[in-house]
């Protein structure tokens, strides 16, 4: 029983890591302040669940198809959203993405008016359980590999240049706007991928799983891990999930309430004592910066 729970939590942590890596690409590496990342997770989750639920008899075939389709759709949707929104800078970009997240949540709340099987604010039930530990683990490894290879290439260098100094990036002949669009869309596609995996892990979706508080959680994770550090994001995601979710089974009910009081205090303390996050921009093992 406990083992099963730990496997679930572990798989969940893998999903969160994939999504957080996407946000790190957007904010940590490119410097685009996004507070609506969970919305893309939600889009991926609901879209894939809608597909697998409607064609559940096809089993893993439709699951694979649904995942691929959610990744492509979140990529395209976020690209289209980004075209106007990325004209905004820093805090304003954050506000606009936060607004987008809230709009998506409201749409999900009302989704049952168009697709009754999406359940709206009652939540979407009985999604087939296709996601298992090997699948999330392989997905996570694939995402880490893709991200690492992207970061240490022409594309990743363009993003870093933009984050460091946008005007200098222009002067380096970098098409700043296009690279920003790509970074945002790619990071969001990671979130869509993670959402699709998540939907078939817990087999239940609710719009509040993807509201702006979840976006903020993801932001917390990447800042805690260290902006611009993949190792940091991976470790912070797992720590975050295990400390917050895992402790639920260990602690008695009386202390459980205090969990959510102590957690923000730790957060405030960490921001003060380790402003650069656990890892800064350092990497571990083969994630280390490789020079060409």
């Amino acid at each position: 029983m406990i083992n099963l729970y730990i496997i679930k939590i572990f798989s969940y942590a893998c999903c969160i890591t994939i999504s957080a890596l996407g946000l790190n690409l957007i904010y940590g590496y490119t410097g685009l302040f996004s507070l609506g990342h969970a919305a893309f997770m939600g889009i991926g989750a609901y879209l894939s669940a809608l597909l697998t639920k409607s064609f559940s008899s096809y089993g893993y075939l439709v699951y694979t198809g649904a995942i691929i389709l959610s990744v492509i759709s979140t990529f395209l949707i976020s690209y289209l959203i980004a075209i106007p929104i990325l004209k905004l800078k820093s805090d304003y970009l954050g506000i606009a993405t936060l607004g987008f997240g809230i709009i998506v949540k409201v749409l999900l709340d009302n989704s049952d008016k168009v697709f009754p099987q999406m359940g709206g604010s009652r939540g979407m039930l009985t999604i087939p359980n296709f996601t298992n530990l090997p699948i999330v683990l392989l997905s996570l490894i694939a995402v880490i590999l893709i991200m690492r290879n992207l970061i240490y290439s022409k594309f990743g260098r363009a993003l870093l240049a933009i984050r460091e100094d946008e005007n200098a990036a222009y002067a380096m002949g970098i098409d700043v706007y296009k690279q920003k669009l790509l970074s945002f869309a790619l990071g969001s596609a990671f979130a869509g991928f993670s959402g699709a995996l998540y939907a078939h892990l817990y087999c239940f979706l609710h719009p509040s799983n993807f509201d702006f508080l979840r976006s903020i959680d993801l932001m917390l994770i990447i800042v805690l891990g260290g902006l611009g550090s993949m190792s940091g994001t991976i470790i912070a995601s797992f720590l975050w999930v295990f400390i917050l979710e895992g402790l639920r089974i260990i602690l008695p009910q009386a202390i459980l309430d205090w969990r959510l009081v102590i957690y923000p205090l730790l957060l405030i303390l960490l921001m003060l004592l380790r402003p650069q996050g656990l890892f800064g921009n350092k990497e571990l093992l083969w994630l280390k910066r490789e020079y060409p």
Binding site: I216, L220, L267, I268, P275
Partner: peptide, 28 residues
């Protein structure tokens, strides 16, 4: 934090931390 001149994002995360703290502390 202001005195340490940390990046602005840290101040924002701290504000979020304070927010979580107040909400959950009040819920006790």
């Amino acid at each position: 934090l202001r005195k340490k001149n940390v990046p602005r994002i840290n101040l924002l995360i701290t504000a979020i931390g304070v927010s979580f703290f107040l909400e959950n502390f009040a819920s006790l």
